[in-house]
Amino acid sequence: MQPWAIKGELILNCNCTVFCPCVVSLGKHPPTEGHCQTWGGVRIDSGHYGDIDFSGLNIGLLIEIPGMMSRGNWKVALFVDERADDATFDALVKVFSGAAKGTTGLFQVLVGEFLGAERQPVTYETEGNTRHITVGRKIQGIVHPVGGADPDKDLVITNTQYWMGPDITVATATKGKVRAYGRVWDFDGRSAEICQIDWHGPK
């Protein structure tokens, strides 16, 4: 096993009509619609797998969960930044499939079907507090934090045991469109979350 690490930011937009209950229930409460359909984007500010550098690359995700998050049987697809060479592509697949253990190792337990991994042009841009994500023609997303009492501060759920990270910014999507692997989703106005990530693999 190679040591690995990823620092950056992750966003998710799902079909929940209000903020995702999985964050605070740790998967013990069902999604608001009874099942979860979600897409995600990851901006890798710095990272590596052994001697392979991930810094500056972006990732797209598609996740489908039939019920409670903790009960597994997830279906997952991975979209890797087209700028990744073959060795980097393979390493990122190992990390995001859970094969590399560490923070994402739970995917090995929870994912019942890995739909596939493919290269796509993935962009992850921040304008003010709004995140713009595109994954080729597969995913188009615009996500921003919901308003709080202090307009200069994000509404953040802190000190959680959520697998992504302890502090989750409550957000919503003004655009959340997916057309991939036979899925056609539109989650405009639905739940979203923003998380600073600091993931790592076995030491």
Results as ranks from 00 to 15, higher is better:
Val122Gly: 01
Ala91Tyr: 12
Ala99His: 14
Glu118Met: 14
Met68Trp: 00
Gly98Thr: 11
Gln120Cys: 10
Asn58Ala: 02
Ala99Ser: 14
Thr103Ala: 13
Phe96Lys: 10
Met69Ala: 11
Leu61Cys: 01
Val122Arg: 02
Asp85Ile: 08
Ala100Phe: 08
Ala87His: 10
Leu62Gly: 07
Asp90Phe: 09
Phe79Val: 03
Gln120Val: 08
Met68Arg: 14
Leu106Cys: 06
Arg119Glu: 03
Leu110Asp: 04
Arg119Val: 07
Gly112Arg: 12
Leu106Gly: 08
Pro121Glu: 02
Phe107Pro: 03
Val109Lys: 13
Arg83His: 03
Thr88Tyr: 01
Leu61Phe: 12
Lys75Met: 10
Gln108His: 07
Ala84His: 07
Ser97Asp: 11
Met68Asp: 01
Ala100Asp: 12
Leu106Thr: 08
Gly116Asp: 02
Ile65Pro: 01
Val109Arg: 13
Ala87Lys: 15
Phe96Asp: 04
Leu115Gly: 03
Trp74Asn: 01
Ser70Phe: 00
Thr104Glu: 10
Gln108Met: 15
Glu64Ser: 12
Ala84Tyr: 06
Phe107Lys: 05
Asn58Pro: 00
Asp90Cys: 07
Phe89Ser: 10
Asp86Cys: 05
Thr103Ile: 09
Lys94Arg: 15
Met69Ser: 07
Ile59Gly: 03
Phe79Tyr: 14
Asp85Gly: 11
Gly102Asp: 11
Leu110Ser: 06
Glu64His: 10
Asp90Lys: 15
Asn58Thr: 01
Phe96Ala: 01
Val76Asp: 04
Leu62Trp: 09
Leu115Val: 08
Ala117Glu: 02
Val76Gly: 01
Thr104Arg: 07
Phe107Cys: 11
Asp86Pro: 05
Leu62Phe: 13
Asp90Ile: 08
Ala117Phe: 07
Val93Gly: 06
Glu118Arg: 15
Thr123Arg: 03
Val122Asp: 02
Phe107His: 13
Met69His: 09
Thr104His: 04
Gly72Asn: 01
Glu118Ala: 14
Leu78Thr: 07
Asp81Gly: 02
Val80Trp: 04
Asn58Leu: 00
Phe79Cys: 10
Ala84Lys: 08
Phe89Ala: 10
Tyr124Pro: 00
Asp81Phe: 00
Thr88Arg: 13
Leu110Lys: 07
Glu113Asp: 15
Gly105Tyr: 12
Gly60Phe: 03
Val111Ile: 14
Ile65Leu: 04
Lys75Thr: 08
Ala99Ile: 03
Met69Asn: 04
Val80Met: 03
Val122Phe: 00
Lys101Val: 02
Arg83Thr: 06
Lys75Phe: 05
Leu78Arg: 06
Ala84Ser: 12
Phe89Cys: 10
Ala100Asn: 13
Gly72Pro: 01
Ala77Gly: 14
Asp85Tyr: 08
Trp74Met: 06
Ile65Lys: 03
Lys94Gln: 15
Thr103Pro: 04
Arg83Pro: 01
Gly116Pro: 14
Phe96Leu: 05
Gly60Arg: 05
Pro121Val: 07
Pro121Phe: 01
Gly67Ser: 11
Glu113Val: 11
Gly116Leu: 14
Ala117Leu: 11
Ala77Pro: 07
Glu118Cys: 13
Ala100Met: 12
Leu62Asp: 01
Gly112Met: 11
Ile65Met: 10
Phe79Gly: 12
Asp86Ile: 11
Arg83Cys: 00
Ile63Ser: 06
Glu82Asp: 13
